[in-house]
Amino acid sequence: MQWDVILQALPKLLQGVVLTLELVALSCIAGLIFAIPMGIARASTRWYVRSLPYGYIFLFRGTPLLVQLFLVYYGLAQFEAVRQGPLWPYLRDPFWCAVITMTMHTTAYIAEIVRGALQAVPAGEIEAARALGMSKTQTLLFITLPRAIRIGLPAYSNEVILMLKGSALASTVTLLELTGMARTIIARTYLPVEIFFAAGVLYLLIAYVLVLGFKLLEKVLRVDTGQLGR
């Protein structure tokens, strides 16, 4: 193990960490925003409401993130219409391609989490709200959703950590996030063990901070006291 090589590579690797965090933060927040309505629709009892989200989730859960990323980055750029279109300034940029793909990917997973959480809200609580004279919308906003957020939060934190590791694929579209930076340094030093070890430790640290953050959030939202059967 050549520690001095790791030390020299550290500033560059930290630059990569910043980009990794940007990718994960943007896609996981945007993903959550899109996933909540999609999850609500997915949990609907009406087939025509739930079929569209069902199809979306089926498509994005059933294909690898790498394939999706290549289709968005290299695939869309093949079409003249896309290259002349208004979105090209964004689709031209590998950063936005990665953010868009990761968002679409994680939205599918989070929507499933939202659906599961909504369906896990005890029926008695919803009935109680309705019996007190709350409308369907009021019940959803004030009773079902807050309960579902507590139920779904641990699963969501899991998804964020999965996306942290999934973001490594952005290195295949020229982005120098943590993995891309590590591979570029290895191309110069031929020391994959040292550099990947350092990158692995950095991923671990990020994951650790995320776990701590979600633990705190669970405490604030009192997830543990909100469990079923209490």
């Binding site: 290299y74 750029a77 093949q78 290259r83 031209r92 590998p94 295949t172 020229t174």
Partner: peptide, 11 residues
């Protein structure tokens, strides 16, 4: 090959 793809797409 991927570099050529991005050259043809104008990136």
């Amino acid at each position: 090959e991927n570099a050529y793809l991005d050259l043809s797409s104008g990136r």
